[in-house]
Amino acid sequence: MAEHRAGIEAAHQGYRFSRVFPFQGSGKALREKRPNALASFATHHFTLNFLSAAALCGAWEWAGLVPISPAFPTFGETMGALWSISADGSLAGAFAVTLQPLALGLVVSMVLGVGIGVAMGLSTKTEWLASPIFIVAQSAPLAALIPLIVFAYGIGLTSKTIVVCIMAMPVIVLNSFAAVRHTPKSLIEMGESFLATRRKVIIRIILPAASPVIFAGLRLGCASGFIGAVLAELLITPTGVGDLITYSRSIADYPTMYAAILSIMAFSVLFIEVLSRVEVMIFRPEKRAVS
């Protein structure tokens, strides 16, 4: 049974890539690197990021102008639509609706997920009972459960919140579990050698040691939660941003449809970015110093 697999996924995304690799490729070791003002400007990451963003927007504009499909508006039209739905308040209203099940679902998933995961990490009995469920849930296409959830709880807020929960929970649980289980043994033994009680060991050693990975799991859980929230609105009943997407699609107002999709994706990416900044701030002083 691959108990720690999901935890590895998190460790994967959260940690492996944050390592600083000094080596950049085969030819580099043999070539002398001389500082060159032009080259360093060209390879500076702001320049390149800006250029690649500009290139993508340009390609979008061009593809819309051709047009590659009648359902493909230009970048300019999409931005215009984004401006008009922002100006008339419909975007803000849609977000207010979408964020309800999302926020509710994420809070429930975090509290329950971290609780269950930590319990599994601390007790092998809980692990035995719960981990197969979450391991299967992690690799299973849980979206297939949505029709059932609708039968059970209707098409309202409850169903949508549950969709967010089933999407976000497994990754949170399994990361919290792996984090607690992989607390360095020497740290726990150190605590015991200084006569700390089990409770003190948990509060003072295990939880602080596990918190970076738990937080990484929360971040991944939020990303999955966004998928759930959007899916719920597209699949159950169109409300909020999902309604904006579905309605503008039905009346062939493609710029508005694209603008709505762009806005929810941008919102989610920004939210996750803020979370990872917070993560760096709280847990990774060494990473902050490097970047």
């Binding site: 690649s52 963003a53 998928i227 959007v230 941003v241």
Partner: peptide
């Protein structure tokens, strides 16, 4: 293996990795 390619593509790869891709299915 290439710093330039990395700088060009990495932000997009990271973006799509955490974005709710479900929203793109209607597109």
């Amino acid at each position: 293996s290439s710093v330039v390619a990395d700088r060009i593509f990495l932000p997009w790869v990271n973006l799509f990795l955490s974005a709710p891709l479900t929203a793109l299915v209607p597109v």
